[in-house]
Amino acid sequence: MKAGRAVFAATLRLLPSAVRARVVEEMQAIYDARMAEASNARARLVVWVTEMWGAAAALWRLRSWRRVAQPTRAFDGELSDVRLAFRGLTRRPGASVLAVLTVGLGIGSASAMFSVVDGVLLRPLPWPDADRVVAIYPTIEEWRTHPSLSASWDRARFSPPEFADWAKRQMSFAAATPLASFTRHLTGRGPAELVSVGVASMDPPGHRRSS
């Protein structure tokens, strides 16, 4: 039953410190006395279960003993909640630094995420009637079943003459402008760098329709 006693002792160590010093040794003495009294293995098992149940009850009922037993000392008078919290932080600086870093990281990532959501989803584009602007892609039916091109069958690109033809004939939009984006290697001074490039026409003649 040595293991049983070790489990019981370990459970008692979980009691709040304000209580531990007052009860743990005596509780172990009672445990030992009851075990010594138990005449056989079954009786010892009953004692163990009873004592473990009692220890668990004590853990639960006494978990906030300091607060229950000394309410006037903790919350009345000049000692405010803030000062009490500050004392708790200074008592365990390592844990406090970790908590501050964790909270900081949480706030930082949340605000970064909000910036993205705000910029991409919430805030309108910086020109009038931004909700009427659409992107148009040609579709290539033959690509649908193509092993490597099927992913972009409905996001193909216009060639410049295709776009010019489409823009002249389309009747649905007030204006159309070709855009392209790709990556290029930028070389010159220092090591080469991969850069994102965006290209747009400057309102080419013939693409604007009167509306």
């Binding site: 009860v23 509780m27 009672i30 006395a33 009851r34 004592e51 220890a55 009850a57």
Partner: peptide, 26 residues
């Protein structure tokens, strides 16, 4: 002491069922 209290309670109640040390100390 705690164990003697438990034995006296047992005597008062006239039973072998006794409170655990945890219940006693609560």
């Amino acid at each position: 002491h705690g164990w003697a209290i438990i034995r006296r309670i047992r005597e008062i109640e006239g039973t072998t069922r006794t409170p655990s040390s945890g219940s006693l100390y609560i």
